[in-house]
Simulated scan of single mutants.
Amino acid sequence: MFRGSMVAMITPMTPTGAVDEAALEALVAFHIENGTDAIIAVGTTGESATLSPAEHVHVVKRIITLAQGKIPVIAGTGSNSTQEAIDLTQEALTLGADACLLVTPYYNKPTQEGLYRHFKSIAEAVAIPQILYNVPGRTVADLLPETVERLAPIANIVGIKEATGNLERAREIMQRCGDQLEVYSGDDATAMELILMGGKGNISVTANVVPALMQKMCKAALSGNRAEAEQLDAQMRALHFTLFVEANPIPVKWALAQMGYGHEEGIRLPLTPLSTQHHETVRQAMRMANVQF
């Protein structure tokens, strides 16, 4: 259903922590102009964990309005409360989102049966395309391939963002689910390989900084052009790693601030601005990707 470079977009903020409306508008235009294939609104990178429910809905609504139908908007609506996830997903449908991204429930450590029932309940409650999101490094809960296989026949569960960085895990999901489920990378460092082996795209942090380059790399990989994909990915390689020198989205928000999108102090506690010791490391990675700042 969705293909290519899908940016896990930041939520720009002012130094006081308010949503920076002007920077948000500029960022959506930036991605449209640079060919990004979809915007993920208020996912992990969008600081969903620190936005109030009202702010969460506001930012999703604002991005949909700014996109004007020129680019698909996939709303992050996951929660560790099944009912809250249903409510957010219903709200996203009402607002006009094209799909929803649902992270595995965090903190309360559900069983595989609990994960299955959680996602099944949301899919049955809200008739919108839904993408599962597995990132056990953040949530502790690991959505195993056999559970993904059980969920794949549900019509409006259309894909999974696999953020483990484990290519064998992604391959197993593809083999188990076939055409029933599309697999997307959630790990920039291994995204190219995942797409070349049959994945449909990359839900990307790096694309915040180099949207055109990421879109071209994904397009080359989707067409099976390994040589071109490798050449393009090499330019972003340093960014794939340096944007995680501290917890995401700390480095990427700092990088975007250097480019004029938002403020480097615009991040909410308990996250803090990028430590000074990492500034030059991120700058160097940006230079290697030919970023103008």
Results as ranks from 00 to 15, higher is better:
I71G: 10
P273S: 08
T190E: 12
M13P: 04
A23C: 13
T281H: 10
E162T: 10
R138H: 03
H56R: 14
N290Q: 15
N134K: 00
P145E: 11
A220D: 06
R171V: 02
A152P: 02
E280C: 02
V19K: 07
L271D: 02
L151G: 06
W254Q: 07
T44A: 01
K70G: 13
G262D: 07
S79N: 02
T272W: 08
L95F: 06
A207G: 10
Q68W: 08
M286F: 11
Q83R: 11
L213R: 15
V291N: 09
T89Y: 02
A97Q: 04
E228W: 04
V103E: 00
D187F: 11
E47N: 14
D179T: 15
I195V: 08
M174P: 13
A212R: 12
V60K: 09
V291R: 05
E280Y: 02
A207N: 04
I71E: 12
L274I: 03
K219H: 14
A247V: 05
A49H: 01
Q215P: 01
D187C: 13
L232W: 05
A123R: 04
A152G: 13
A26H: 12
E124V: 00
I64N: 12
R176T: 06
T242L: 07
R3T: 11
Y184V: 07
I86V: 15
G69K: 14
R169L: 05
E280V: 13
H279S: 03
G35S: 10
F30G: 03
T16W: 02
T16C: 09
E55P: 12
E162K: 15
G76Q: 09
G17N: 04
A18Y: 03
R117V: 03
D187G: 10
M286G: 10
L51I: 06
I32V: 12
G35Q: 07
E172K: 15
K161Y: 03
N108R: 02
V103Q: 00
V205I: 13
N202I: 03
L95V: 09
E182S: 15
D87E: 11
T65Y: 04
Y133H: 01
Q175L: 04
H58L: 13
Q292H: 08
